[in-house]
Nucleic acid binder design. Structure first.
Lengths: 351, 351
DNA sequence: GTTAGCACTCTAGGGGCGCGAGTGCTAATT
DNA sequence: AATTAGCACTCGCGCCCCTAGAGTGCTAAC
């Protein structure tokens, strides 16, 4: 695929910028007017015809202006899109609110909100992966003689509770001792390493322990699948987009966003990472973008997703993304996703 | 307002039933055909004209059939609606899945799902109110010398975590003692009674305690406002309804369902409780229904809400509701809401 | 390589028209 | 007095036709 040079490239950028802004097909005359191109509309027409041949533009019908194709958007995000870093005031405001949050799930909710409110699209934020987290404490809280609540505190500050059925009646004091015993032995482990087999080696075959370990293992598995790990916001924003004016178009998308297997897929699938020299030079975390037909899921083919991973303590902790129409303000979306991924990672690291 | 007698009443019921089923205005001939009314369409027309005068029906235009008004639906739900109790198989299935859940928030998620899936509308379920719950244990889990995680276990089985900044450095052992001390003194209290003043009387002025108490108080306040307390599902179902075919109609509704102050209002506002003789006789928990224009919120005027309170240990614990178009299958919605409120209450009571 | 000029294409939007559904009224029937 | 047959009437919906205008591609000149 030959690279697109100077003027033609500029025209592609203008068409896409304008189309993103107006949601209307863009004609040759409109392109010429904007950013005083010193050429006639006929020349622009020739270029646009060429861009159409190359598969970057499309006309809805013969007498209409041009509209970007998914491939056009791809070129755009890979090399044309102007970054729209949020204004410094906004940045500090966001940073401050995030650093104020004491609970991880609060911080996550704030990020989801900021993403949705800042772009008028939908946002999805995933809580830190459990298996990567390192155990700091494990506590058993006696509920009844035969039941206890397991609370695990990890380095990412996320604690999860689950009740466990004990095999023998246990007094609160016994429970405490048991708790400290286990806690001492598993502190420092990655949650993902906490398999029954690994535990057996350290702890031995004491029945009560095993039960607790099994339940913790289950807790991890369950939580990975639990909807509480995913925070979605701003679905209604999608309805504001003119391309989703017809609810029958929007319905599959919103349905997909309610099914958390789909959301997980969206978050992790992350399309190709643009080999963008700018971001490489600036050591920015990469942002993954999936555009329209690039989606695996049929129902997402009218949307684009801008996703990023956030890191806590240098390790990948979770994902966040924006979901909007393919006619998305990519500049804003990319910058915001990148900024909030960084900031969320930092904020969680400090808890 | 005179009560509506025999045939006229029957006709109103038929019109509303049919309209709910088809979403199309119902004509006199269609009414006669259904349930072989032994009268001519002219007679039906007279009755329908009367019902329109009374404000229960409406015609979109002169040459169309009749459509129920909000007042019509009101009469319908108050005295005409046929209960549609879920089939026994369904009931046991739901009951079993709910009783299997070990975590309250899981059970709540299941209920939200069942409500949405069982009706094709949106559902909202609120976690048990905190202030009504009775403290069973309170634990402090040391994180750093100056920070600890508060875990409160209550009778409704809901436990909540929050970190607290301690005023003085505290060793894990100290923390444990402190924890047991406080726990012993507050066990049995209603969370709502856990004010700083009340605590001071029992505990005295020890600084460390105060800080913990203040934080627990804040925890309650925060959680009451926290979005994690509300589980919404099936918003996309609303887009499937023909009256919301136009996304611009649906958008305000979905936006409202994303704002949790609005949802809280919807859940508690609960319109008039029908003085339905049947449900009174059968000792069924009342269901609160708000229809279209009865809503306080402008943006909800095209929807109806069927809400109920669920009880744990005899006390009101939380709310759940279905949100759909005013053209709602009330029979199904009411039965399902009632059944799931009962079952959720029972299930939570057993944890 | 660029541009003016022009014929051409196609959509959006408006007006006119007929169909059909459903009504309300009137007068006859029970 | 209630019911009903008959009928004229209303009005939205879909259809077709038409025009205006936007935007194109092509050609020929620069």
């Amino acid at each position: 695929m030959e690279p697109i040079e100077g003027r033609r490239r500029e025209i592609l950028r203008i068409v896409i910028d304008d189309y993103i802004a107006t949601a209307e097909p863009i004609g040759s005359e409109a392109v010429r007017e904007r950013h005083g191109l010193n050429v006639s509309s006929a020349t622009v027409r020739n270029e646009m015809a060429a861009l159409e041949d190359m598969g970057y533009l499309n006309q809805p019908h013969t007498s209409a202006g041009r509209v970007p194709t998914d491939r056009g958007y791809r070129v755009y995000v890979d090399s044309l899109v102007p970054e729209e870093t949020p204004p410094p005031a906004e940045q500090t405001r966001l940073r401050e609110t995030l650093f104020l949050q004491e609970e991880p799930h609060r911080a996550i909710a704030r990020v989801a909100h900021a993403l949705a409110a800042g772009t008028e699209y939908a946002s999805v934020v995933e809580a830190p992966h459990l298996h990567e987290q390192v155990i700091r404490h494990l506590h058993l809280i006696p509920l009844t003689p035969r039941r206890a609540l397991i609370v695990v505190v990890t380095d990412a500050g996320v604690f999860e509770g689950k009740t466990v059925e004990l095999e023998a009646a246990t007094s609160p004091d016994e429970c405490d001792r048991l708790s400290q015993e286990i806690s001492r032995r598993v502190a420092g482990w990655r949650l993902g390493d906490l398999t029954v087999r690994a535990m057996d080696q350290v702890i031995g075959e004491v029945a009560l322990y095993r039960q607790v370990v099994i339940e913790v293992g289950r807790l991890i598995g369950d939580q990975i699948a639990a909807s509480s790990r995913i925070h979605t916001e701003g679905q209604a924003n999608i309805l504001k987009q003119p391309e989703f004016r017809d609810a029958r178009r929007a319905e599959p998308v919103l349905s997909a966003l309610e099914r958390h297997e789909v959301v997980t897929e969206i978050l992790h699938d992350g399309g190709s990472v643009p080999a963008d020299s700018r971001s490489a030079a600036m050591k920015l975390k990469p942002v993954r973008i999936t555009i329209g037909a690039e989606h695996r899921r049929e129902e997402m083919r009218d949307t684009s997703v801008v996703a990023a991973t956030y890191y806590v303590g240098g390790r990948p902790a979770g994902e966040l993304a924006i979901v909007g129409p393919t006619r998305m303000r990519y500049g804003r979306a990319i910058s915001l996703v990148r900024f909030l991924a960084d900031t969320l990672g930092e904020a969680l690291g400090r808890l």
